[in-house]
Each structure stands twice: as structure tokens, then as C-alpha cells.
């Protein structure tokens, strides 16, 4: 509005094409800010506050301080379910990381070199990522059914009958099925991200290195990998969040109780059970405490990973 701000703005912003006053900028940010406030910040803070109260149904009772949190670590079933579920979340993360940074990176590297059908393969690998995880989960549970599933049938046909087993009924294999299906669904994501990062590495550097006599492993180790660290960082953080919040695939494969006998239980399932399936009248208090802890944990560790990755980047360059 005022003439002064119109004239000072271009000077302050130097090379930006369009000059915006601070107030105009605020107006543009406002819609996003309101959405963020209403749908993210407000529920986040209310859930936090809920976790400090006792509840009877949906009526808020007295302030109980940290009692809901204490319940989680001292009372059954939480004191047994939380460590059990947490280990499975960690397994999911480790499994997905291993899969994505070996198979995913390998596929991306191969695709980077391929000229023909590159788009086709990229689309194929990304396809599962675009399908609802719930659908993927139910699909796999059908495929692995010991009665009608094709997986065991195929194994028997090709003479590997002794491997055939109730994959989702055996606690030793069930969690690995969850890990595998999750990693399988997600594989398109690192393939795309690493593919883009690989495309961003200037060819001259590699050429110069090969002229200097570097082997292909040396080139990968000293040029490609360091240049990929930012992408690896992003993949790691997002994989971590995804693994800690995993819900649809474990739900589709093992139900809300993490069947069989808790072998596929994860923290989000525990939260879901507590909030929506328990007859407990304090369900809101306890489940809010679980959600808050989970949020703090995910937030903290994600920050840590981001910080570590940035430090690694600085060391490399």
C-alpha cells in the first residue's frame, strides 16, 4: 500500500522478479497457515492435552499428570504390547532400509544405464507404490493363504514343497512377510528418488575419473555414493517415518491384534486397538499418551537422522 515499501522492496530482495511486501506475503501464506493450524497443530496440541487427563467415555475427568504414560509402561497389556510392537516397527525400518538401499539402489543404477524401456520399467517398479497399501496387504494375504494361495501351490509344483508353509500363520515368518510386503510396495520410491539423484550427477566427473583409471567400483564408491548422500538421507527419514507409523499393511495381513499371537503387532495397531476397540472408558487418555509418545519419538529420531546425514554430507564435500 504505502509508497515507501513499494520502493524499498525491490532493493531488499535484489534479484527476485516480483516484489512483495511483507504484508502481501503474509496474506499468501495465510491459507496454508490456517489449514496447518486447524488440521495439524490444533489436533496435535489437543491430543497432547488429552493425554494428561483421565477420561470417562468422551467426558474429560481430572488432571492426572503423567499417569496415562505410567500406565503404558506398568500395566498389562501395554507393558507387554509396547516393547513387542516396538521391536516389530524397528524390524520394519531395518528391513525396508536394507531392501531399499541395496535392491532399490541397484535397480536405480541399472535403470540409469538403460536407455530403452527406461520409463516402462520405472512405471512398473513404482506401480505398487501407487496402489492403496490396504489393497496390497489383502492381495498378499490371499496369495499366501495356505488353502487357496498361489504361492504355496507354485512352491509345491516346482518341487520346493518343504518350503511351503502357512506364511502368515507362523509367528517366525509372519513379521518377515510384513517387512517384505512393505519393502516390496515401497521399492518404487527409492528407485525414483535415486534415479533422479543419479541423473543429477554430471557425466564429466565420471568421465574424468575413468580417464584417471578409476575402476567402476572406485567410481561408485568415491563419486556416485557421496553424491547420493542427500537422497539417501531423504529416503532414510521418510522410511523411518513410514516404518514407525506402519498401519494398513500390518492391519491387512494380521488384523488389529497383530495375529498370530501378536507376532505382527506394531505401535499404530496398538494405538488403534486402544482408541477404537477397547471397552476401557479411559481409551482417549491412554491412546492419546501412545500417540504423543510415538510422535515425540518419530520427531526426535527423524531430526537426529537429518542432522547426522547433513554432517555426513559436510564431511564428504
Amino acid at each position: 500500500m504505502s509508497a515507501t515499501s513499494m520502493t524499498t522492496a525491490p532493493r531488499r530482495r535484489g534479484n527476485t522478479g516480483i516484489a512483495l511486501t511483507r504484508r502481501t506475503g503474509m496474506v499468501f501464506v495465510l491459507p496454508a497457515l490456517i489449514l496447518f493450524g486447524v488440521f495439524i497443530a490444533y489436533p496435535l496440541l489437543t491430543a497432547l492435552s488429552y493425554s494428561f487427563f483421565g477420561w470417562t467415555g468422551i467426558v474429560r475427568g481430572d488432571f492426572v499428570g503423567l499417569e496415562n504414560y505410567l500406565t503404558l509402561f506398568t500395566k498389562l497389556p501395554y507393558s507387554e504390547d509396547i516393547p513387542n510392537a516396538f521391536v516389530h516397527n524397528v524390524l520394519l525400518f531395518v528391513g525396508a532400509m536394507l531392501f531399499q538401499n541395496t535392491v532399490g539402489l541397484g535397480l536405480a543404477t541399472l535403470l540409469h544405464r538403460v536407455r530403452r524401456f527406461k520409463r516402462f520399467f520405472q512405471t512398473m517398479y513404482t506401480l505398487p507404490y501407487l496402489v492403496s497399501p490396504l489393497v496390497i496387504g489383502y492381495l498378499w494375504s490371499l496369495m499366501l493363504s495356505p488353502l487357496f494361495g498361489p504361492v504355496n501351490a507354485v512352491l509345491r509344483t516346482i518341487g520346493l514343497g518343504e518350503i511351503a508353509q502357512p506364511w502368515l500363520g507362523n509367528p517366525q515368518t509372519a513379521i518377515w512377510v510384513v517387512v517384505f510386503v512393505t519393502a516390496w510396495q515401497w521399492i518404487g520410491f527409492p528407485v525414483l528418488l535415486y534415479g533422479a539423484a543419479l541423473g543429477g550427477i554430471p557425466e564429466e566427473i565420471e568421465e574424468a575419473a575413468s580417464l584417471d583409471g578409476a575402476s567402476s567400483w572406485q567410481r561408485f564408491r568415491s563419486i556416485t555414493l557421496p553424491m547420493l548422500v542427500p537422497a539417501i538421507g531423504t529416503v532414510s527419514v521418510l522410511t523411518f517415518i513410514g516404518a514407525m507409523e506402519a498401519f494398513p499393511i500390518p492391519y491387512a495381513l494380521g488384523g488389529s491384534q497383530g495375529n498370530p499371537a501378536g507376532a505382527t503387532d506394531v505401535l499404530s495397531l496398538l494405538f488403534y486397538r486402544t482408541a477404537f476397540e477397547s471397552g476401557s472408558s479411559n481409551a482417549i487418555g491412554t491412546s492419546s499418551a501412545i500417540a504423543t509418545l510415538l510422535f515425540l519419538f518419530i520427531f526426535g529420531i527423524s531430526m537426529l537422522i537429518t542432522w547426522l546425514m547433513r554432517r555426513a554430507e559436510r564431511k564428504l564435500f
Binding site: 490444533y42 489436533p43 520427531f299
Partner: peptide, 24 residues
């Protein structure tokens, strides 16, 4: 940009859980 993306993603992702238990 990557940093913003990662932070935004982790905020948004975790918030989903919390908002699930806020009655409207």
C-alpha cells in the same frame, strides 16, 4: 528444499496419528 521437504513430511506424517484421536 530437501530439508523443508523432510521436515514437513515428518511433521505431517506424525500429525496424522495424533489427529486421529481428536474428537470433533
Amino acid at each position: 528444499r530437501r530439508r523443508i521437504l523432510a521436515s514437513a513430511a515428518l511433521l505431517a506424517g506424525s500429525a496424522l496419528l495424533l489427529s486421529a484421536c481428536a474428537p470433533s
